[in-house]
Each structure stands twice: as C-alpha cells, then as structure tokens.
Simulated scan of single mutants.
Amino acid sequence: MKNSTLFQHKQIKTVFSFKELIETHFRGEQNAFCWQRNLEGDFEELVSKLELKDNVTEIKAEDLLTLQLSEKGNLARKLILNDLQLLTNFGASPLLNLIKNYERDDALDFISTDVYSFHVDYSPIATSTFLCTYYGASSEILPNDEAIQKILLPEIHEKLKDLYNVEQRDFEAFLKDHYFDLHYEAKSKAKPINLGVGHLWRLAVDHPAQTGLPCIHRAPLENDGELRLLLIC
C-alpha cells in the first residue's frame, strides 16, 4: 500500500504515517489529508459488545478495556486506543462515538444545518478536524468547486431575508449566528468522495489563519440496522 493511493483527487493528499499527517500543510485546493491504512481486527465484534445509551454515545477508553474480546477483536481495540493516544499526545481532544443517528435539524423547511448537510467546520483558532470511521457508513467530502453556499441560492437567500426581518440585527451577523454561512449545496454534477473505513483523515477548517480552502464534508445516512463507530476531534 506504500506505493499506491486509493484517493486520486487534487483535493486529497495521501500520507503513510501519523507524523506526516500532522506535519503536512494545507495549501490551495488541497484541504484533505488521508493517512491511508488497511486496519486489521474485528471491529464488528467490538461494536456488537459496546452499549448504546443514546443515539450518539461517547465511548471512553475504559469502556473499551472492559470488553471481553477475541484475538481479532482485541487487535481492533488496540488500534483504536493507539489512535486516541496519538491524537491526545498531539494536543487534540479525540472523541470515540457509537452512533445510531444524529439529531436532525427540521426547524426550517428550506435549509438544514445538521451534520448530514454538507458543511465546513469553523474555529476562531488555528486547528484541523480529524476523523476516522472504524465501522459502518463513512463520511463524505465534496470538492469546493462542486458546491455552492446555501445562502447564495436565491430562493434560500430570500427566505432568510424574510426571517431576518423579524429579528432586528445585522443580516451577516444573523447568518453567522445561526451557522447558515457554513452550509453548502452540491451542484448538479457533483461527485462526493466517500472517505472509506479505517483511514485517519485531517480536514482543513475555516479559521482566521487558514490560507487554503476549508474542506466541505458531511455525515452519511446510516445503513439500516447498523451502528457507526467514529473517532472525531
């Protein structure tokens, strides 16, 4: 796998170590780095033994350590614990989530701002988004030139203007306060890129020091009857 890459796109740079993942700089359209891996271990067994307490349940390291697993299940656990430790040592705050489904945003019938909508992450400080799907449906990213901000679509813009008229404040601030400016619509011939299972991704975030384009991404619709196991920070 060292000499071949799964993801052939100008937006994506493939790396083959955690060191390379965190030390490579985003530039221009290249805003998604993939530590390409072929993980060994039985992640399905591990997921089957975890307890889902809410639709999104945070799994702690100690929860993993209490599980009675086969040799392959134990290998999967070791890989996850190692990823958590690598990111923690780097200074990140990784979360391991067992997911049935996320909460949907249906407050407005003409625009959605939940994680199933294509969006970019924003931070007031320089940072990145890390994620890895160990089991279940995988996240997707979208090339920036294949998307348009939802607030620029005339029908949505006008409806937001009508909504804004009820609330006495600056329109631009109104859009930011409700995160409308972070969400995107895929263009008609857009081709989302599935991030696959097992790879650790680093995605560019919209922040004041960011010189390149932030990475547009979304959570997938879950497969029927199947949970997801996702690391994110």
Rank of each mutant, 00 (worst) to 15 (best):
M1L: 10
S4P: 11
F7N: 04
H9F: 03
K10F: 15
Q11Y: 02
I12E: 00
I12K: 01
K13R: 10
F16D: 10
K19W: 07
E20H: 13
L21R: 03
L21T: 04
H25L: 09
G28L: 00
E29S: 05
A32R: 01
C34G: 03
W35S: 08
W35D: 04
W35A: 08
R37P: 03
N38F: 12
E40L: 15
D42L: 13
D42P: 02
F43N: 07
F43L: 07
E44F: 10
L46H: 04
L46Y: 03
L46G: 06
S48H: 11
L50R: 06
L52K: 04
K53M: 11
N55W: 03
N55E: 13
T57A: 03
E58N: 14
E58T: 12
I59S: 02
K60V: 05
K60N: 08
A61C: 13
E62G: 07
T66K: 14
T66G: 09
L67S: 06
L69D: 04
L69S: 05
S70E: 01
S70D: 03
E71W: 08
G73D: 07
G73N: 06
L75W: 10
R77G: 15
D83E: 10
L84V: 01
Q85C: 13
Q85I: 07
F90D: 05
F90V: 11
P94A: 15
L95N: 09
I99M: 06
K100T: 09
E103G: 08
I111Y: 06
I111V: 15
S112Q: 13
T113S: 07
T113N: 10
T113V: 15
Y116G: 05
D121T: 00
Y122L: 14
S123I: 01
S123N: 06
P124E: 09
I125M: 10
A126S: 11
T129N: 06
F130E: 00
L131N: 02
L131W: 00
T133E: 00
G136W: 00
A137P: 00
S138I: 05
S139P: 04
P143W: 00
A147N: 05
I148K: 06
K150M: 15
L152I: 12
L153M: 06
I156G: 09
H157R: 14
L160P: 13
Y164K: 15
V166L: 09
Q168H: 11
Q168L: 13
R169M: 09
F171A: 11
L175M: 11
H178L: 12
Y179Q: 12
Y179E: 08
F180R: 11
D181M: 07
L182V: 11
Y184P: 02
E185M: 14
E185I: 10
K189I: 14
K191V: 09
K191T: 14
I193D: 05
I193S: 10
I193L: 12
N194M: 13
G198F: 08
G198I: 12
L200Y: 02
L200F: 01
W201H: 12
W201I: 15
W201Y: 11
R202F: 02
A204W: 01
D206T: 03
Q210C: 02
T211G: 04
L213Y: 01
P214H: 01
C215M: 04
I216R: 08
H217P: 01
R218P: 06
R218C: 13
A219K: 05
A219G: 07
P220L: 09
P220Q: 09
L221G: 14
N223C: 15
E226V: 07
L231M: 08
I232R: 08
C233N: 14
